[in-house]
Design a protein around this nucleic acid. Structure first.
Lengths: 107, 107
DNA sequence: TCCTTATATAGATAAGTTTCTATATACATT
DNA sequence: AATGTATATAGAAACTTATCTATATAAGGA
């Protein structure tokens, strides 16, 4: 029981940072490599690396390596429906109070 | 845009602590005064007071004073549907992966 | 083989969070 | 009025987090 509060808190905590919310938002348009993601932010490459680790550690994001590049994407398969729903809340353009996605152009 | 990530992160952050998840879980059974809430936890009264402040500051919980007592309840009216849904995820016994609520008895 | 490039890791620092003890506030009761 | 009780606030300690710089790793191309 206690354990469930802990586990859920960990996943929710991973989403409780503005930069990581934005990363989730960006990845909702499809996979991106680290260097592309980095262009959306003012922080450094190691900081992005840290954020991606947090998102991967709790299963929200997965990584596919190809040569020098790391391609990140939302790990929908691994996310339980609760987290998926929250991600949709944040990323779904049409049904979104926060309008976070409105300034992104998905290709 | 930036602002929305910040605002959403603040609300999500308020829910990213195991103790506060449990408080939300307990309040899903109905309003409780601080001293009743406190019995579920091992921390002190000022610590509970801190957690309630965090939950109230972002609008998840509201407080009704009656004499010496402070009655806390989930502020469903003020919560937008996104947050409500996440609270349901955590608190709804029948449709809940986390099963957080299973050990609570609502009267 | 050497250099460049993409990403990860190590370690430090500054800021934020959770918790505590001590104390204040404010209402109730005697 | 004095005392007791429920809650809030202040301030400090311990821990965690976000960020940085410097460096390591590992793959590709000259």
């Amino acid at each position: 029981m206690e354990k469930n509060y802990e586990d859920n808190a960990k996943i929710i905590k991973a989403m409780s940072d503005p930069s990581r919310l934005r990363i989730i938002d960006i990845l909702s348009c499809g996979q991106k490599c680290a260097c592309d993601l980095l262009e959306y932010f003012n922080f450094t490459q190691p900081t992005l690396s840290h954020h991606m680790k947090v998102l991967m550690d709790c299963g929200i994001v997965e990584c596919k390596k190809d040569g020098l590049w790391s391609y990140y994407s939302l790990n929908n398969a691994n996310c339980n429906k609760h987290i998926l729903f929250l991600m949709n809340l944040i990323t779904d353009k049409d049904d979104c109070i926060c309008k976070v996605k409105s300034n992104l152009e998905c290709k």
